[in-house]
């Protein structure tokens, strides 16, 4: 099947709020396969959200397993994802398929508890932190019509007042 097209900012559709998935049908599974196909066509990309390809339903894919130094849960297909608890904050650099040639610093919760459904409508729950938690928060933002551009931390302040102090080895 032909690859789906990625919506690119300032496409106004990226600000739409996506609706929850209600039917866990073959159509959903087919769409997830198509979404994964386009997701995999961007090396280095660790997540995608359905509205980025113009389907305004609460579906995201996240897979940071290519970054083995970050603890992760492998390839995640998350339907109607919801963050039920978050803790701490961390500053990191983000980019987005929908915002080419720009990256910026964004503050995100450090650890989250995530509830979601799988493609069969079964309940999932994860505790995650760091890079994977950042990816999930970035993708859930797409479902709420937000981009990382809406959460940028100014460069100078990010540097002088919010320095990340790495843990001593």
């Amino acid at each position: 099947m032909a690859l789906l097209n990625i919506l690119v900012y300032p496409d106004a559709r990226l600000t739409k709020i996506s609706r929850p998935v209600k039917e866990f049908s073959e159509d959903l599974r087919k769409f997830v396969r198509d979404l994964e196909e386009i997701f995999r066509s961007f090396p280095g990309c660790v997540g995608i959200a359905a509205p980025q390809v113009g389907r305004f339903e609460r579906i995201i894919l996240v897979d940071i397993s290519d970054k083995p130094k970050h603890v992760n849960h492998g390839f995640l297909i998350l339907i109607n994802p919801e963050i039920t608890f978050c803790e701490g904050s961390s500053l990191g650099r983000e980019g987005c398929l929908s915002v080419p040639d720009y990256t910026g610093k964004v503050e995100r919760a450090k650890s989250i508890t995530l509830k979601a459904l799988n493609q069969k409508g079964e309940k999932l729950e994860f505790q995650m932190s760091g890079y994977e938690a950042r990816a999930v928060q970035h993708e859930i933002d797409h479902l709420d019509g937000k981009l990382f551009l809406d959460r940028l931390v100014s460069r100078r302040n990010a540097l002088s007042k919010r320095v990340e102090i790495p843990a001593k080895p």
Partner: peptide
């Protein structure tokens, strides 16, 4: 003097 690798998250 410290360094932190920047691992840009692209989603």
């Amino acid at each position: 003097a410290r360094m932190t690798p920047i691992d840009t998250m692209v989603g």
